[in-house]
Amino acid sequence: ERVRARYDYEAQNEDELSFKKGDIITVLEKDDGWWKGRNGKEGLFPSNYVEELE
């Protein structure tokens, strides 16, 4: 599954994923509120910062 970033997100910890608004992220795992994904790097990000691609 792929999602698009709705906002910029700056990683707060080294296991998190940074991205810019409009970036496409491949979702690897979904957990409550935090998803694991890849966009060149791999890490956790808040699920409310992304939207599913149509």
Rank of each mutant, 00 (worst) to 15 (best):
G33Q: 13
K30L: 05
K21A: 13
E14F: 09
E29S: 15
E42S: 10
A5E: 02
E29Y: 12
E52P: 15
E42D: 10
V3M: 13
D23I: 04
R38I: 10
V3P: 02
I24M: 09
R38L: 09
K30T: 06
R4D: 02
K36P: 00
A5F: 00
G22K: 03
E52W: 11
L53R: 05
K30M: 06
N48C: 15
W35K: 00
N48M: 11
R38C: 10
N13Q: 08
K36H: 07
R2Y: 14
A5P: 02
R6M: 14
L17F: 04
R2E: 11
D32M: 09
A5I: 00
L44W: 15
L44K: 12
K41S: 12
W34F: 10
V50N: 03
E54L: 12
K41N: 11
K30F: 06
N48H: 14
E52K: 12
R6E: 04
E54Y: 13
D23R: 03
G43L: 00
G37N: 03
L17C: 04
K41G: 11
E1C: 15
L28G: 03
Q12P: 04
Q12R: 13
E10A: 11
G37H: 01
V27S: 01
K36N: 05
P46F: 05
G40H: 12
L28S: 05
E10S: 11
E42W: 06
E54N: 13
E52I: 12
V27D: 03
Y49F: 12
D23W: 06
E42C: 09
R6H: 05
V27M: 04
N13E: 08
R4Y: 05
G43W: 00
G33Y: 15
A5R: 02
A5C: 08
E14W: 09
W34V: 06
W34C: 11
R2L: 14
D8C: 09
G40R: 09
N39Q: 08
F45V: 04
G40M: 09
L17T: 01
D31C: 15
A11R: 02
G43T: 02
N39L: 15
N13P: 00
K30N: 04
P46E: 03
V50M: 06
L28Y: 08
G22T: 02
P46M: 07
E29C: 14
K41D: 08
E14H: 10
V3R: 07
W35G: 00
I25W: 00
G37C: 06
E14C: 09
V27H: 01
V50R: 00
P46Q: 07
D32F: 09
G40F: 10
V3G: 04
A11Y: 01
A5D: 01
T26G: 05
R38V: 08
G40C: 10
L53K: 05
D23T: 07
Y7V: 09
Y49W: 08
D15N: 15
E29P: 03
K41Y: 09
T26N: 07
L17M: 09
N39V: 10
K21Q: 10
I24G: 02
N13S: 13
E14G: 11
R38Q: 09
K21F: 05
V27Q: 02
E29F: 13
L53I: 14
E54Q: 13
E10Y: 13
G33M: 14
F45I: 05
L53F: 13
E1D: 12
